[in-house]
């Protein structure tokens, strides 16, 4: 067993894990943060996308032990108080989900896209950069609309702060 410690959604956490424990399982089973989903566990579907040190990564192909000392944000950590993150609000408003299985990963990947590109994001870039996230319900159109809408909203919020 290995002792791991990291920051998750602003809180310092630690636990004892086997070397083979995947980060996504540490989040879900040790910390009870089940918003991060496990789809393919081979880095293809993107359902397990989280942020590690500010970058979108797939938690199903990272060992919990490799995450030692990192700063993790999951879908549970992005709303402030009772208010949805602008990306969550945009997915709700534009109906960017149906069954919802891919949604946490979609939202974490989309926030990362907006963080890197800001409001001059275009549709082609959104579609290209969401290639690592698979949705089997929506056909992506409303997801892309939501991300483009949130790109404007997120910029406004940063400017207001």
């Amino acid at each position: 067993m290995t002792k791991v410690a990291m920051k998750v959604n602003g809180r310092q956490v630690s636990g004892e894990v086997e070397g083979r424990t995947l980060l996504v399982h540490f989040l879900r089973e040790n910390l009870g943060l089940t918003g991060t989903h496990v789809g393919c566990d081979t880095t293809q579907c993107g359902a397990c996308t989280i942020h590690m040190n500010g970058q979108a990564v797939k938690a199903c192909t990272i060992l919990a032990a490799q995450a030692e000392g990192t700063d993790i944000v999951t879908i549970e950590g992005i709303a402030t108080g009772g208010e949805l993150h602008p990306m969550q609000a945009a997915f709700k408003q534009h109906h960017g989900l149906q069954c919802g299985f891919c949604t946490p990963g979609m939202i974490m990947a989309s926030i990362d896209i907006v963080n890197r590109h800001g409001s001059d994001l275009d549709e082609q870039t959104v579609r290209h950069e969401l290639e690592g996230n698979i949705c089997r319900c929506t056909g992506y159109h409303n997801i892309v609309k939501a991300v483009l809408a949130a790109a404007g909203a997120q910029e406004q919020r940063q400017a207001a702060e």
């Binding site: 970058q55 990564v57 797939k58 192909t61 990947a109 990362d112 896209i113 950069e129 290639e131 690592g132």
Partner: peptide, 9 residues
């Protein structure tokens, strides 16, 4: 090569 998320790692 892969995706944004996989190139980050």
């Amino acid at each position: 090569l892969g995706h944004v998320q996989t190139r980050a790692r």
